[in-house]
Design a protein around this nucleic acid. Structure first.
Lengths: 120, 120
DNA sequence: GAACAAGATCACCATATAGCCACGTAGCGA
DNA sequence: TCGCTACGTGGCTATATGGTGATCTTGTTC
């Protein structure tokens, strides 16, 4: 074997790998798309239901869903006139949970740093 | 306690939470920034070293570092004339590793799907 | 086939941002 | 003080993308 790796993440990523990685993260970089994913975490939803629940326009939701499908994060199936959507990659839940937990930690840390105790 | 949660990720996220989440993921959505993070995974680096290693211009690297600092992912300290950068949030490594592993799985799956056995 | 409903796609505009150049700024040495 | 070095920043352009209304496609119903 080669020299032992310092860490699994220490490997140098190729430009192609960086592009693919960035594309995945970019799919998660819009609040509307995260909202759609968050809704789909509760179960399957039709496009119409997502439009109503998200408050965005139909064309907009459709386009965002297209991005999520392109990133392999959402899958769809036709059911009559309707398109039923579901989360196709469970990594979405993990990533969001991790990031949310991290954000909570940071915010709590900042809140604690702002604590003001007048001392009686 | 309230009704049991179906999953930790099933919770509905507020618009503010969605914005914060999206902002974090957006910081990871550019190949150059991922490249910088990947370099920093090997250890501390000065801005000049990052400029040389990344192949991007100095102004561009500086701006990308500013974004990463804003997202709390990179920290810096001044050392004489130089600015030494380091990864400030270990979640970066985890996220990249997870996403990379997922990408590998997908690519291997597609490769397998393209396997062609002429059958003698 | 006609009418209708659900989505996808197109055309368009507004905004965000990556990249680059020029310049500003802060330490360091002479 | 003068000049140099290492970065940060502002201005600029080109491109990408979000949002929206209009239109097209497909499947259902009568």
């Amino acid at each position: 074997m080669t020299l032992k790796k310092k860490s699994a993440a220490t490997k140098e990523l190729s430009p192609l790998a960086l592009d693919l990685l960035a594309a995945r993260f970019r799919a998660l970089s819009e609040p509307v798309r995260l909202r759609l994913l968050n809704l789909l975490m509760q179960g399957e939803r039709t496009v119409g239901q997502l439009v109503e629940a998200s408050g965005s326009g139909q064309a907009n939701v459709s386009k965002h869903l297209s991005v999520l499908r392109g990133a392999g994060m959402v899958g769809t199936r036709k059911q009559g006139l309707m398109t039923v959507c579901h989360i196709a990659d469970p990594i979405v839940n993990e990533l969001c949970e991790m990031m949310c937990a991290r954000l909570r930690e940071e915010m709590e840390g900042k809140a604690a740093a702002l604590a003001f105790d007048p001392g009686i």
